[in-house]
Design a protein around this nucleic acid. Structure first.
Length: 573
DNA sequence: GCCGTTTTCGGCCCGACTGTTTTCAGTCG
């Protein structure tokens, strides 16, 4: 039983309760539980098996929800959910997935028109049956038609790297307007999330209408969803939604804080404020009518007696308690990174030569890099064989003699066979400066076999780094399933470092796994897996992901100077 | 449904825009 499946059942329960018109806080309890379960690094099912009381230690899980989790783990389903499904008008939950349709409207559509699906909704709207319903009119019918026709198959959250391009372009567009003194991307993007559903942009300006007008006039805009004097919302041709808020200087910090979220974090902070008799909203911190602050984000933290919490940690995953105890990690930054340890050259599937990659890395100011071309197993990319790595080593030696400030390490990204053995001879591996192992094929082995495969690979004496451990591709494939806890313990025992691969579609390990790795005592490396010089710039995405996993500079091996990095790397050899 | 150095009951974060309404419910973030 996957954590994600438990979360899915709780989310559906929340939706059904909304349609039913249940207590809003009860609904929130289910959504909160879904989030807590989903973000828990180890399988909740293991927790159930180990100790009946452990579930209730999780925040927001009381006796009732703990019982429901046990039921789901034991039986694979939830009776209360089945009952709620019988009660609710059929199809209403599906209708709620359409923007602009919430529980109340979904219920009316399902009950009064018998609409059972999004397809049925489209038919009803085309037939003009919706306009006369209570709460609906001609405009809302047209809006549904527009929404459905604009729908693209397989909608998903878009990658952080792509969102950055649109967002930064919109910021530049808004900053050209006179009177705009500040503009930032807030929301999940600012929290460093690997994908974003939409972008939230904040602008400081005294003339909100002018900002809003310019915002909706952005050339890429396909549709204007809202267009008010302080708030507007558009959809770009790419399908990306961008929301705008305009704030005065005195409120900018409170607004930036508020719209950075996460929602769960904000609620927890506002509750702290409430306990102190304060009201915290996007305009500032207030005691009664009196404004105590709001120009800077620190005004909010000061009001509730906490130090600054970096945006990447604002997920209500224990950061408030850690802040109270002054135990927040000193998060790694892009500037801390001294070397990039995974990249490819034309010797395997890279698009630039070894020399070109090295020169690009030197120009970026790195102290060291590693060239980690593929071994022979990945035939489609024509990897190097044992003799090929010996030849490459001689090329790297000549290159190092020529380079002024950069040291190039000779490495390899070696495939792990299904039985856990490696794809290069032991003598070849022993002669390299740094050895990455990775899973590229047979990612769908049963978890027990996959775990054995991983444990055997990590125990090989020459292995230094476990590259993109799960092999998942965001919006692509789910990645290998294995016992992460055992793999982390093995990595610590054998001194193997865990990679955060900075390719925007990988970002593997993910944030929760990073946090689990650090808790287990493992060290990380953040690297780009670059296949061309331009991809060396991906490092920022890997650093963001590591920060979301609470990675301090000290937890990331490639923040160390070369000599200390090598000492750590080879301590186990 | 959760939670408690104010509480085991009574709270639970807060506000803008839209469209359908004649003062506000629904939706969204």
């Amino acid at each position: 039983m996957e954590n994600a499946e438990i979360a899915r059942l709780f989310r559906e329960m929340a939706e059904l309760l909304e349609i039913e018109g249940a207590n809003a806080f009860r609904i929130r309890a289910y959504r909160n539980a879904a989030r807590v379960v989903e973000e828990h690094a180890e399988p909740i099912a293991d927790l159930v098996a180990r100790d009946g009381k452990a579930l209730q230690e999780l925040p927001g899980i009381g006796a009732d929800l703990a019982g429901k989790i046990e039921e789901i783990v034991r039986t694979g389903s939830l009776r209360a959910l089945k009952a709620a499904q019988r009660e609710a008008p059929r199809g209403a939950v599906e209708l709620m997935r359409v923007p602009g349709i919430g529980p109340a409207k979904a219920r009316v559509l399902a009950e009064q028109l018998g609409v059972r699906s999004v397809a049925g909704l489209a038919r009803a709207a085309k037939a003009g049956k919706i306009a006369g319903l209570p709460g609906f009119g001609a405009r809302s019918q047209q809006k549904i038609l527009d929404e459905l026709s604009a729908r693209t198959a397989g909608e998903h959250r878009i990658s952080r790297a792509v969102a950055a391009q649109y967002g930064e372009s919109m910021l530049a567009h808004l900053r050209e307007l006179p009177g705009v003194t500040r503009a930032d991307i807030a929301g999940s993007f600012r929290r460093g999330r690997e994908t974003v559903g939409d972008l939230d942009i904040l602008v400081e300006c005294t003339d909100g209408q002018a900002v809003s007008d310019r915002f909706v006039a952005f050339p890429e805009v396909r549709e204007v969803l809202a267009h008010g004097p302080t708030k507007a919302s558009v959809v770009l041709r790419s399908g990306l939604q961008i929301d705008l808020r305009v704030l005065a200087a005195a409120s900018y910090g409170a607004g930036l804080y508020y719209f950075t979220g996460s929602k769960a974090h904000n609620i927890a902070i506002r509750r702290l404020g409430q306990q102190r008799g304060l009201k915290i909203n996007e305009y500032g911190v207030f005691r009664g009518k009196k404004r105590l602050g709001g120009a800077g984000e620190m005004d909010v933290f000061r009001a509730v007696g906490l130090p600054f919490i970096p945006p990447e940690l604002r997920e209500d995953r224990g950061e408030i308690e850690a802040a109270r105890r002054k135990q927040l990690p000193d998060l790694v930054t892009l500037a801390d990174i001294r070397g990039d340890l995974q990249m490819h050259s034309t010797d395997s599937d890279g698009r630039a030569s070894l020399d070109e990659m090295a020169e690009a890395a030197e120009a970026m100011g790195y102290e060291y890099i590693a060239i980690t071309d593929h071994g022979p197993m990945l035939r489609m990319v024509q990897g190097l064989d044992d003799a090929g790595f010996r030849r490459q080593r001689r090329k790297i030696d000549r290159l190092n003699a020529r380079l002024k400030t950069l040291t190039v390490l000779a490495g390899a990204e070696v495939d792990v066979h299904a039985d856990g053995t490696l794809d290069l001879a032991d003598e070849t591996l022993a002669a390299l400066d740094i050895v990455f192992v990775a899973l590229h094929a047979q990612l769908d082995l049963p978890p027990e076999r996959q775990t054995e495969r991983v444990l055997k690979a990590l125990s090989h004496p020459s292995v230094d780094v476990f590259a993109h451990p799960t092999g998942r591709l965001i919006n692509g494939r789910r990645g290998a399933r294995f016992d992460l806890d055992r793999a982390l313990r093995a990595a610590v025992d054998h001194g193997v470092l865990l990679e955060v691969d900075a390719q925007p579609e990988r970002l593997d390990l993910d944030d929760t796994a990073v946090r689990a790795a650090i808790a287990a005592g493992a060290h990380l490396v953040i690297d780009t897996d670059a296949h061309a010089p331009a991809e060396l710039r991906f490092m920022r995405w890997g650093v963001d992901q590591a920060r979301r996993g609470w990675a301090a500079k000290s937890a990331v091996a490639n923040t160390r100077p070369l000599s200390r990095f090598l000492k750590l790397l080879h301590a186990h050899r």
